[in-house]
Simulated assay, not measured.
Amino acid sequence: MATITGPLSGDAKNKVADVLQGALVDLVDLSLIAKQAHWNLIGSHFRPIHLQLDEVTELARSHTDTIAERIVALGANPDGRAATIAKSTKLSQPEAGWLEDGKVVATMTDILDGISKRMYERIQATEETDKVSQDLLIAVAQDIDKQHWMFQAQR
Rank of each mutant, 00 (worst) to 15 (best):
L24N: 09
G80Q: 12
F46G: 13
I71P: 03
E100M: 08
M1S: 13
M119P: 00
I85T: 09
V132F: 08
N77F: 13
G6I: 00
W149N: 09
W39M: 13
I71E: 12
A60N: 14
H38Y: 07
M150R: 05
G75L: 04
L27W: 00
G114H: 04
W98L: 13
H45P: 01
A96D: 14
P7G: 04
I4T: 06
S62H: 10
E121S: 11
K13G: 00
S31E: 04
A37M: 10
G80V: 10
R118C: 02
S44Y: 05
A73G: 08
H63E: 10
H50Y: 07
L8T: 09
D130K: 02
L32G: 03
S9H: 07
K15V: 08
I49S: 04
L41R: 02
I67V: 15
H63F: 13
S9W: 00
D110L: 07
T89L: 08
H50Q: 09
T109A: 14
E128D: 15
E95A: 15
I111C: 08
G6T: 04
I138S: 10
A23D: 15
G97E: 12
W39K: 02
E128C: 02
I85C: 04
H45F: 10
A17D: 06
N40V: 08
A17I: 05
A73Y: 08
D26Q: 00
I144W: 03
T84R: 01
G75H: 10
T109Q: 04
L32H: 13
A106R: 06
S9P: 00
